[in-house]
């Protein structure tokens, strides 16, 4: 499993706020670093690759709560720098369509950018070591390792956000203290709100309602279901990259920006 969409309002403000700031900073840096490439080539390429990832993410396998990502493919095509921008774009559009939280766009951007960047680096490194004929196993290995890393990053985020260090009074509802009576009939507001109230027993019960997440159980579920998703994604990625490597090798092995010659459809090898 690549990443579970963490709902809004679960993680503390400082964590998702930091995620947003860091994501915006990384996107700005990536935009500056990519200034060497022609903007007229970058923008449409970013657009279609991000759209490809969006199309893949819209197909889910419900029992596993897993959906395809194609992030390793996107990373191999775009390279590490443009991958950060694509990750941000994908998360913003998914959040607006209700697929993933709005407040956690920053954190999700960081995790997906990590997948794309590490996927790209692993794929290109392993291709250099094992050779181009082994593109399928290289793609599969890169995908599994990348997704394992991003899943660990996800568990790390939940651990930071939900551990005992961040336990706090949450104001959660206690059904046992519900009183279906008129709160104004006995001057409840003046007596309770401003004088501190007489019922101190319930305050202790309220203090017990701390929504600290069970990180150990979460990690167990993620690492149990995750490998199934990693395997599926690895097979799909290997199949796609293997097919594209046969038809248009420069696209896979050198990235999309390396193709500057305009190829005529059906003549991808240039008559050779």
């Amino acid at each position: 499993m690549s990443h579970i969409h963490i709902p809004d309002g679960v993680l503390p403000l400082w964590l998702w706020g930091s995620g947003w700031l860091l994501a915006l900073l990384l996107v700005t840096v990536a935009s500056r670093l990519s200034e060497r490439a022609d903007i007229r080539r970058k923008v449409p390429l970013l657009g279609v690759v991000s759209a490809l990832v969006l199309v893949a993410m819209s197909t889910e396998i419900v029992p596993l709560a897993y959906h395809m990502n194609l992030t390793v493919i996107a990373g191999a095509l775009l390279g590490p720098v443009l991958s950060v921008i694509a990750a941000f774009i994908v998360q913003v559009i998914l959040a607006m369509l209700g697929h993933g939280g709005v407040t956690v766009v920053g954190l999700n951007t960081l995790i997906v950018a990590l997948e794309m960047t590490v996927g790209c680096i692993l794929f290109r490194s392993l291709i250099r070591i094992l050779g181009r004929p082994r593109v399928r196993p290289v793609a599969a290995i890169s995908t599994v390792l990348t997704l394992a890393l991003s899943t660990t990053a996800l568990v790390g985020v939940v651990w930071i956000g939900g551990s005992g260090a961040t336990q706090r009074e949450t104001g959660a509802l206690d059904p046992q203290t519900l009183r279906f009576e008129n709160p104004l009939s006995e001057g409840a507001i003046s007596n309770r709100l401003f004088s501190g109230g007489e019922d101190h027993g319930h305050e202790e019960e309220a203090d017990d309602h701390e929504a600290s997440l069970n990180v150990k159980r979460f990690a167990t579920v993620v690492y149990t279901l995750g490998p199934l998703g990693w395997l599926l994604e690895a097979l799909i990625t290997a199949g796609i990259l293997g097919y594209v490597a046969r038809v248009r090798p420069t696209l896979v092995f050198e990235g999309a920006l390396a193709e500057t010659r305009h190829t005529i459809p059906g003549d991808e090898t240039g008559g050779r």
């Binding site: 935009s31 923008v43 279609v48 969006l54 199309v55 774009i89 913003v92 559009i93």
Partner: peptide, 13 residues
Amino acid sequence: VVGDALLMTYRST
């Protein structure tokens, strides 16, 4: 580049 790519992505989808 991010803002323009957002618009292109929506169209490309």
